[in-house]
Design a protein around this nucleic acid. Sequence first.
DNA 1: TGCAAAACTGCACTGACTGTAGTTTTTCTT
DNA 2: AAGAAAAACTACAGTCAGTGCAGTTTTGCA
Lengths: 206, 206
Amino acid sequence: MISSSSDATSEPGLRERKKVARREALVSASHRLVREHGLDHVTVEMICDAVGVSPRTFFNYFESKIDAVLGIEPWVLDPEVAATFVAGGPTGRTLDDCAHIVASVLTSSPVDHDRMGDVMELAQREPALVVRQLAWFEQHKVEVEKLVARRNGNDVPGPAEEIVGSMIMVMTRGSFRYWDASGRTGAPSTCLPTVVAELRRLLTDS
Amino acid sequence: MISSSSDATSEPGLRERKKVARREALVSASHRLVREHGLDHVTVEMICDAVGVSPRTFFNYFESKIDAVLGIEPWVLDPEVAATFVAGGPTGRTLDDCAHIVASVLTSSPVDHDRMGDVMELAQREPALVVRQLAWFEQHKVEVEKLVARRNGNDVPGPAEEIVGSMIMVMTRGSFRYWDASGRTGAPSTCLPTVVAELRRLLTDS
DNA sequence: TGCAAAACTGCACTGACTGTAGTTTTTCTT
DNA sequence: AAGAAAAACTACAGTCAGTGCAGTTTTGCA
């Protein structure tokens, strides 16, 4: 329990490699099947048969069928970025500082871009995927709101903090959307300035 | 099929009245049970037993257990308000015009305020309710985005339109949140100006 | 009163998801 | 290399949400 899993630099070990591969296989198989038959006509059993895994194991990897398609993983926010935000930085302008948070999340995301593109594509045909993605954002929004509250000197998030949290969600989602619309070239984070500009335009137009 | 149900001014008729009462009873019972046992420990059968209705009938009223708790109904957007928005009005400033959309939805909402307060209260303990509410917003956001696209002279909504749609969602949710935080006095729409001001402050602060 | 439409119900079914207990596989120790 | 410990996998039995269908009751209307 000490060496292999916690030491990021050394070899991951067979157990860990198998785990990653299996997870990958499940996501991949679910994508293929959903593309082929549609989300409603794909059962967990079908995905499991395709990979050669028991249904019970499936639910050890993902909490739900949809989570497998989205390949949901816990997000990580760089503690240093968070600390800077709480301290009122880096620019002092709320929106721009929120953008830094979003940029950090987007770049540190462990999911590769091809996979992300697949998900965006599937999400256009399956509204349930979008909804789940939204729920995932919502889950982490609570965490973000705590940061905002600390930045604002409040001990508990109120409505004002929730609005800021929502804006961060909008920016994240918007970046993905612009990235998708622009042919999915480069990283999603490159679209963030466009989103911020769009928001500014929206709130200051004559 | 002609007189009773389509004529809003005359008496609704027994059938319609029973339907409304039953719906009301299901929502009410679900609230009581969820408050008492928590969402996960309330089954559809329990709600049905409390009201005296077969489970099959339950699903003729609501698509899911959660929908009953939220008392979900289709929203109505005043066609005149929509037309004005599409034409670029009423103020010409995008954000303010979005606020008019939100105000229209909030005031025309058929749900009474006590019921709304109950839902807000339950939603604090049951994240799944918030998620479903979010999904409900998302569903209608698509419709709003079409309006935005027409206003902008586009035939199909793009990323920019989606951002505007998201902002309308944020404003709606924010209004509810401020209304809830301020003791739930008056109508939620009275909190809308506060939300708009907060958004403006957010994007223009030094 | 009698007929048609709407609403309700029972029943059988699919499929997601869970708890548990037992087996296999990997890892660590000696 | 052998065996203990830990982690992962599996089979099984079960709960519950949600659906389609076919038959019954209730309501509206002539």
